[in-house]
Amino acid sequence: MLKKLALAALAFCFLAPTLGLVSIGLIANPSANATCTVNSVTVVDVPDELTVTTADGVSFTLNKQQLTHAATIITVGSQIDGIDRDATKIALMAALTESTLRMLANTGTYPESGDYPNDGNGSDHDSLGLFQMRPQSGWGTVQELMDPEYQAKAFYGGPAGPNYPSPRGLLDIPGWQQMGLGEVAQAVEVSAYPDRYDNYEPVAEKILTTLTTGNGAGASSTATSVDSKHVAAKAKKSSEQVVFPLPEGTWVQTDDFGPRTDPITGEATTHAGIDLSAADGTQILAAADGVVTVAQFDATWGGHIVIEHQLDGETVATGYVHMWAHGIHVRVGDNVVAGQYIGDVGSSGHSTGPHLHFEVRPGGTNSEPVDPAKWLNDHDAADLPEATTGPTGCEL
């Protein structure tokens, strides 16, 4: 639960939107008979190949190069505080899903990427490398992202991560230990296909047990015990979890819901949401699991996102307004999870400074708004002052 923060100066007015290598970066090359401790597991020799099978029954063979990239991911994780066996498995699942553990260039968007050691050429937007990270989303430069070790560090994230605090790595996802493995991978990757990652869980498990020691019955038992908390968490219907839309400690509430004087026009109007002042570029988080129904930029609203959720058996939409055009990181139709990084705080459209205008609309995208502070408080996501009266309509 976030702490109540004092009200500051008024910020802006907004209506309810109708919205809308083969370069190996190992510290010790595992194929050279070296070993490296990984959270009490040790990386050993990399085999020439490994046949694996996905959860949906598809079998294929990974070659030595792909397995060496896997060893890089494991080795990098072993040096980061907070990265356990589950976190390493999630990273492997993500890289398997995104690139099949191949270091991919993208010469169509970045011709220079072909000058770096690689395992082939990709063509997904401006994505690069093992985890298909995008320079335009702030993950790093082309040179950095063509380094497998750098990509692994970026995926794991945390305060020592090269991309901290945004885009978020695994350690930057609130409550990741209580989430399903695939959910965590999706929260980092922000993919248009969020259900793909779990398909590679048995593949990641086989890679871990093959490339590391301690893979007898004891290790298998440990893996089952650790994974069970993620399975249980997923079964708990994470769709009912609500989180605050900005990271704790990054914001100050500057306007509440209801009647007010527009700070730009000076007219009496109705404020359809709450304003949360935050530094330009602060990450915006999805308040709950849902589907993106609006992700666009226009002159009035600036960059805005709307997500529809199913909570307590009912549809409710949340709106996020004032991002810069480049600060929108989801697309219409994307499935998102609670706490997922969806955009960056900006000051576009009808705005007087960097902040998030946040709305809640029971019934869906185009329904009438209610007080977001009360809604967040009711769902144990905040401790905010609530408006004493609510709006009767939306007008400038």
Results as ranks from 00 to 15, higher is better:
Q310H: 10
Y320F: 15
S239G: 02
S228M: 12
G313A: 05
A71I: 07
P369E: 04
V292C: 05
G349I: 05
D371Y: 00
H379N: 13
N29V: 00
D86P: 08
P202H: 10
A382H: 06
A6C: 05
V38R: 06
A6F: 12
G290C: 08
W139F: 11
V306R: 03
V58D: 08
A272S: 15
T97V: 02
L276R: 06
F358K: 03
E149H: 13
G129N: 07
W324R: 07
G25R: 06
H379C: 04
G273L: 00
I90R: 05
V321H: 01
A91D: 14
G393W: 00
D227V: 06
I274Y: 04
P263L: 10
A288T: 05
D262H: 14
A95G: 07
L396Q: 14
S99N: 04
P194M: 06
T389I: 04
L19A: 15
K4G: 00
I305T: 14
G266W: 14
Q310C: 02
A94E: 10
T389F: 00
G327I: 03
S59N: 08
V242C: 08
V203N: 07
K153Y: 11
A8L: 05
E205S: 14
G175C: 12
G161N: 06
A381E: 04
F155V: 08
G390I: 00
T261E: 15
G313S: 04
V370I: 05
H309V: 06
T53L: 09
Y164N: 12
A373R: 06
I328Q: 02
G319K: 00
L2G: 01
A34P: 01
V243M: 13
G120S: 04
A233F: 11
Q241T: 12
I328P: 07
E386G: 08
I342M: 09
T54D: 13
P391H: 00
L7D: 02
L96I: 01
E201Y: 12
G281R: 03
T222V: 10
Y341R: 02
Y110F: 14
G138R: 08
G158T: 03
S277M: 12
Q65E: 12
I207K: 12
V190L: 03
D312E: 11
V226I: 15
P372R: 02
E359W: 00
